Simulated assay, not measured.
Amino acid sequence: MSTDRRIVLFDLYGVIARYQRPGALAKMAARCNAPADVFAEAYWACRQPYDAGRWSASEYWTAVLRWLSRTADTDTVEELRRTDIDSWSRVDRRMVGYARSLRDVAEVALLSNMPSDHADAFRAAHPWLRDLDHVAFSGKINAAKPDPAAFCHCVVAMRAAPADFLFVDDRDENVRAAQAIGMNGHVFTGLDELAATVDTWLPAGGRTS
């Protein structure tokens, strides 16, 4: 059931923000004196509970370092944490502008898989987030995509119906998860394709072009 609202719900990385900074994993691997491929395996294998708010930054990095048979001293953990946060800090300014412009014709929200400490740093560095109608980071809501709970959080928080949302993500599995709870979905491949989809989805009087 729809309340006849139009809410464009954006993923962050791969849509509005850029992927991890090139060379960041190799830099962190070197700090740990570990092969880059082994470090990357540990980095991603331990990530889900950190993204979902079940582990703190200290718990996450301790797990990564133990995987690598390295000592999790405070200085190493903090250096890795700061390097990691910086590696995910870049945005696509054109996409930021487009998302903000949509607020003239629709509500605009964000749902991103991001640890709690990353979210705090990202908010501080990107004041444009305050222009959005709702912002949800997985580490703050204790649910990470494609968990249905992440999408349901946005539905409840915005007092909307699933059908009111157009969810935009670059990963097909996340779009399918959103559609499974009743949201509309779009797999992001570029701004032009997204703008055409949004224009079609909006009521005729509220289109952006």
Rank of each mutant, 00 (worst) to 15 (best):
R5Y: 05
R6S: 05
R6T: 07
I7D: 02
V8I: 11
L9S: 01
Y13H: 14
G14L: 08
V15Q: 06
R18C: 13
Y19I: 07
A24G: 01
M28Q: 15
A30N: 11
A30Q: 14
R31C: 07
R31K: 09
N33A: 15
P35A: 13
D37C: 04
D37G: 06
D37T: 14
F39M: 11
A40Q: 13
A40H: 08
A42P: 07
A42M: 08
A45Q: 13
Q48F: 02
Y50G: 03
A52V: 05
R54S: 13
W55K: 15
W55V: 08
S56H: 08
S58I: 12
E59H: 06
Y60F: 14
T62H: 00
A63T: 15
V64A: 08
R70I: 09
A72S: 14
D73M: 07
T76Q: 13
T76C: 12
L80W: 01
L80T: 05
R81P: 06
D84K: 02
S87F: 07
W88R: 00
S89P: 00
R90D: 15
D92V: 03
V96L: 02
G97E: 14
A99G: 10
A99C: 06
L102D: 12
L102P: 11
V108N: 01
V108H: 00
S112C: 07
P115Q: 02
D117E: 14
H118F: 15
A119R: 02
A121K: 10
F122M: 03
R123G: 02
H126S: 06
H126Q: 06
P127C: 03
P127W: 01
R130W: 04
R130M: 04
L132A: 06
H134V: 03
F137M: 01
F137K: 00
S138G: 07
S138R: 09
I141N: 06
N142P: 00
A143G: 08
D147N: 15
A149N: 11
C154I: 11
A161W: 09
P162S: 10
P162C: 08
F167T: 00
V168P: 10
D170Q: 13
D170G: 09
N174I: 00
V175W: 11
Q179D: 03
A180L: 10
I181N: 12
I181C: 12
G182I: 08
G182V: 10
N184V: 07
G185D: 05
G185I: 06
H186G: 08
V187A: 01
F188L: 12
T189M: 04
L191T: 10
E193N: 11
E193M: 10
A196E: 12
D199T: 15
D199I: 10
L202R: 02
L202G: 02
P203K: 02
G206D: 14
T208A: 12
S209M: 11
S209I: 12
